[in-house]
Computed example of a mutant assay.
Amino acid sequence: MSERLRKAVTKEKLFIPFITAGDPTIEATIELALSLERAGADVIELGIPYSDPLADGPVIQAASKRALTAGMTFAKALEMVSKLRERGLNAPVILFTYANPLLQYGFTQFVNEASAFGVDGILVPDLPFEESEEFGDICAKEDLALISLVAPTSKERVEKIASSAKGFLYCVSSLGVTGTRNELHPDLKQFLQVVKNSASIPCVVGFGVSQADQVEEINRYADGVVVGSAIVKQIGSLTNELSQPESRSAAVAKVEAFVKQLHQPVASR
């Protein structure tokens, strides 16, 4: 695990926003990522757009389509992290991608380039835990954390994943795809108690977290939150402004303000 990520996960409550690389342009993504750090992001999750995003709902699917249409590729997403480091981004970056493009690119090539470009970890939602050992070993050699996802399935499987996770553990709030939800799953607290009993690293909650009161509630019994679709939806509504250099700064400021209010309950404690 990189020193950046090791330091970040020691914080009391993690705030991890998600955006899609290249949505709507490369320069817009760079400006947005820098604004997320200003808004209080402890870790930034950067999604590599993919044509068949199985774990993503319609909001992030639309973002992937916008990014792919604009010419974003797997290789360009990696290079973007290097540009972010050059522009002064200090927050750890976790890349979110899928097994198919990763296999096509090559596990070892990806890990070597990701490490060289300043990536701190990777999350692959359709790589089953039972089949992840080889890739996890490759990542570990370059100090990349392979972030584990754990969903409310069998208690035995939850405990197995939680006990061996690296970096932080991404707890899926409910079964299904990403997307904003008005209410948290009623069994979430009980699920998290099972996870935290087996995990020795921070347990953060994602999938469906979209409102400041949800962030505040989750932080009462989890170690942080991941917010994706709500932020990506804001970016989607500002696509035209973010795409034009003359209006980009004002649009980025709107997204930054939205992100700040999402985790303000944590910041104000």
Results as ranks from 00 to 15, higher is better:
A62G: 04
N112W: 04
C203R: 11
C171N: 08
K254W: 03
S237C: 11
I60T: 12
P58M: 01
S237N: 15
A91R: 03
P53F: 04
L123T: 07
V195I: 14
S268V: 12
V255Y: 03
T180Y: 05
N219F: 05
R6K: 12
E12H: 07
Y105R: 13
G167M: 00
V150I: 14
A75M: 14
D42E: 10
P186V: 06
N100G: 08
F117K: 15
N100Q: 05
S35Q: 01
K13E: 06
E256Y: 01
S243Q: 03
D223Y: 11
D120Q: 14
E3A: 13
A75L: 15
F258C: 02
F74I: 07
L102E: 10
F117W: 14
F191E: 00
K233C: 03
G206E: 01
L89T: 04
E12T: 07
R6D: 10
T69E: 15
Q244W: 03
F191R: 01
G40T: 10
E131I: 04
D137V: 11
E256A: 09
V150Y: 06
C139L: 10
I26L: 15
F15I: 09
C203H: 05
A28K: 02
V204H: 12
D137I: 12
V195Q: 07
L238A: 12
E3H: 10
A91F: 07
V204N: 12
D137L: 14
L175N: 04
F191C: 03
T97R: 03
K65G: 07
A70N: 15
D187S: 14
A145Y: 05
L127F: 08
A257D: 08
A77P: 00
P49E: 13
A222M: 09
L184C: 07
Y98S: 00
E133Q: 14
E37D: 03
A114M: 02
S64V: 03
I218T: 10
E133I: 13
S115T: 15
V266S: 13
V204E: 04
G88L: 00
A77Y: 11
R38M: 07
Q61C: 08
T178Q: 00
V119E: 13
A33Y: 06
D56H: 05
N240Y: 13
E31M: 06
E3P: 00
L123C: 12
D120S: 15
L95Q: 09
G236W: 13
V209D: 14
G176W: 00
P17F: 02
A114N: 11
V150L: 09
A199R: 09
L102A: 08
K166I: 05
I161D: 04
I30A: 09
D187C: 02
E27F: 04
S164C: 06
